[in-house]
Nucleic acid binder design. Structure first.
Lengths: 217, 217
DNA sequence: ATCCGACTAGTACCGGAGCACTACGCACTG
DNA sequence: CAGTGCGTAGTGCTCCGGTACTAGTCGGAT
């Protein structure tokens, strides 16, 4: 049985949410709170598995309440439930330690499923937020101008790639030489070859290029 | 009515999935395919709204099939359904243009809801994958060792921060001087002060530190 | 067998980076 | 008014980075 606390400042919605949750055999509402501060008290009192939390509330808003709850009661998961699908809300909620973010216009079964998911220790996001998050994760495609760099890196020899990695980590030629048990002069040759092959003017640009392309290597 | 095509190489599972989908009033199975190649044909024939797609299949695997389907039929959404919750699968699926990624051990209602979500043009992820994606996206808090750097940057003067930005972009002292209409010597002073305040040995470390901390500035 | 590319090493040279020290104008403050 | 901090500028010095040229070894390809 998953024990749920509902926190919303609108009484009607609070009760409606409670009913929606309670119709499931495996979910049980253990309390209703009308603001973040009250939620904090009831969490301490009932130790619920999941808190359904609104964001915009008087006294103590849902984000701050989430932060306090997850710090004081790590076993209790918070599922944010809001009307507004703003990226800043999603971000703030997750940053505050929320396990999920759903919209109030979600079908009731999706809400119940969300409770089960966060109770199991996983995360759930509103479909719209999921879409945007995937989009945000995708622009991993390198710029047009970096494409030829990627190709050029493939032309490097194993040794050169090894040197490039150390170079990009910020090591000096001498440090790279010590690390590879080579002479400083040899490293300079490798660096020169790397810069020539990548058509870069100096090691700083190599460092920048390498960090830029790191996700694609 | 959302029209669904089911694609899986195991006949039992294929039929079971079809039944699970068909019990919903708003969902209708328009075809069953036993590999990616057959799915491609049936998509062309029936133009379904959603394809439930397995990954591991003979002839043509689900990832490649997804790539071909979304290219040839952009209106058809693909929802990947697999047994294995591997990050590489999730990534490959989304990269191939899938709108969703669910696991076969998901409750049937979650599966039906997933179909509705992708049919509406949004994305859905298995809870486990959602959790990991959020972890990956959460701009990890700066390391312990970087905390004092952040503080130190606050002690920089406006001019020094300006120089640091240009320095971190990979510009030479001379280039920075030209850009700010100052003498090269003045820039060297600023750089020296910056390195001293941030306790860094050279500009390369400044570049690395700046790129590392960029999300937190 | 010969040639070529990769890896190694060295010397020499130039320019940029970074530091030390000095110095002046300006604005703010005690 | 003097002191302080900031921004500006210069000189001189050392060290590192990058290039040029030479040169040896080794393994694979012609």
């Amino acid at each position: 049985m998953i024990r749920v606390l509902v926190c919303d400042d609108e009484q009607l919605l609070r009760e409606a949410l409670g009913r929606i949750v309670d119709v499931a055999d495996d979910l049980h509402v253990v309390g209703l709170a009308e603001n973040g501060s009250q939620a904090l008290e009831l969490v301490a009192k009932h130790s619920p598995d999941v808190v359904l939390m609104d964001i915009r509330m008087p006294v103590l808003d849902g984000i701050e309440a989430t932060r306090l709850i997850v710090r004081a009661h790590p076993a209790t998961r918070v599922l944010i439930l809001t009307t507004y699908d703003l990226d800043s809300y999603v971000y703030a909620a997750l940053q505050a330690g929320a396990s999920g973010f759903l919209l109030k216009d979600a079908p009731s079964e999706r809400l119940r499923d969300g409770v089960r998911i966060v109770a199991a220790g996983n995360s759930v996001l509103a479909p719209e937020a999921t879409t945007r998050m995937i989009e945000a994760l995708r622009p991993d495609l390198p710029d047009e101008s970096d494409q030829h760099l990627l190709a050029a890196i493939q032309t490097l020899t194993d040794r050169e790639r090894e040197v490039l990695t150390l170079l990009a980590a910020g090591h000096s030629n001498q440090a790279i030489a010590d690390h590879l048990h080579l002479s400083r002069h040899t490293i300079k040759i490798h660096v020169s070859n790397i810069l020539a092959k990548l058509n870069l003017p100096d090691r700083i640009q190599a460092v920048l290029a390498h960090t830029r392309l790191r996700p694609h290597l």
